[in-house]
């Protein structure tokens, strides 16, 4: 809801990171939290309060699928896997994110901005 959106970096960022993590390796919720935290050198704290609704959204959009299984640590877990349409979606998202990031950088970096 509105609160989660404001805690996100920007709308869709969390979903993108989840999909990217899952592209490397299928994982369950807890592992996703750990993984994103480690990969970002603890810069990004994923809140469970946002993670699970996001996972449900992805499930509903059929970008990921979930199966009950057993983890490497021998725990019963629900493992999420990226789907083919999830992969396509991720690629689109990343390319549009890169363009946006480039735009933001141009605006924020006055030296390279043609307008100044």
């Amino acid at each position: 809801m509105t609160e989660t959106a404001s805690r996100d970096l920007f709308p869709g960022a969390l979903e993108m990171m989840i999909l990217e993590s899952l592209r490397r390796r299928p994982a369950h919720g807890y592992a996703l939290v750990q993984h994103i935290q480690q990969r970002s050198n603890n810069l990004l704290q994923v809140e469970e309060g946002s993670l699970y609704p996001a996972l449900q959204r992805l499930l509903k959009a059929k970008l990921v699928k979930a199966d009950w299984g057993v983890s490497s640590t021998n725990r019963r877990v629900r493992t999420y896997q990226i789907t083919a349409s999830g992969l396509r979606h991720l690629e689109q998202q990343i390319s549009s994110f890169e363009r946006m990031f480039e735009g933001i950088t141009l605006v924020l970096n006055p030296g390279r901005s043609p307008a100044n």
Partner: peptide, 17 residues
């Protein structure tokens, strides 16, 4: 504590559906 309000999280996740 770290997880936060479980009921709320569950409710929000359910709302997706």
């Amino acid at each position: 504590l770290a997880f936060g309000n479980r009921t709320l999280v569950a409710e929000r996740s359910r709302e997706v559906w």
